[in-house]
């Protein structure tokens, strides 16, 4: 009969290898296909997302003032090259225009039928400025009167 300590050590050993196996399988599944990084609260930096300068925060949301731009960066897992950036706009229905690194797309249009409060910007990471595994992107609010509120930023990246 095994006493307490050997039993603990045996379970610890099994848990150790099961844990390593789970991490390895999860990692390889993620890097094989695609991955989604979600910045639910852009008012705070995360390990994957950051801003270059502290943004304006109003009503708990990051606001890009009229006719100004803000730079953000996303850090991707190694090997990801193309992706899609989704910016969730707080104000539904208000026509807003954002510019991503010179590529102008109208926010609130692309996803309008599904979700009137979201905007989608497709891009290639090659267009972004790479520093290590971090990629910079700049969002410009082209509106001259209203701020552009950003509820969340989502990046789904493919290898």
């Amino acid at each position: 009969m095994m006493t307490k300590l050997p039993r603990i050590l045996l379970w610890l050993s099994l848990a150790w290898w099961v844990g390593i196996g789970a991490v390895v399988v999860d990692h390889n599944a993620a890097v094989r296909g695609s991955t989604t990084l979600r910045w639910k609260n852009p008012t705070r930096p995360t390990p994957h997302f950051a801003w270059h300068s502290r943004p304006t925060v109003k009503h708990g949301l990051v606001q890009i003032p009229p006719a100004t731009q803000r730079s953000f960066s996303v850090t991707l897992p190694r090997g990801f090259k193309t992706g899609r950036l989704v910016i969730s706009d707080f104000t539904a229905g208000t026509p807003r225009q954002a510019r991503l690194n010179g590529q102008s797309r109208r926010v609130n249009n692309v996803m309008a039928e599904v979700d009137n409060s979201s905007g989608v910007l497709d891009f290639s990471w090659a267009q972004l400025v790479a520093r290590g595994h971090s990629f910079e992107f700049t969002i410009t609010n082209l509106n001259q009167q209203d701020s552009l509120p950003i509820r969340s930023i989502t990046v789904s990246a493919q290898r």
Partner: peptide
């Protein structure tokens, strides 16, 4: 890279060696 892409081999070896050492010591 299958394993080393996800975890550091140093930590894998270290963890196992520590548990085996404790076991043998006991």
């Amino acid at each position: 890279g299958f394993v080393t892409g996800a975890v550091s081999l140093t930590w894998v070896w270290l963890g196992s060696i520590v548990v085996m050492s404790v076991t043998i010591w006991q």
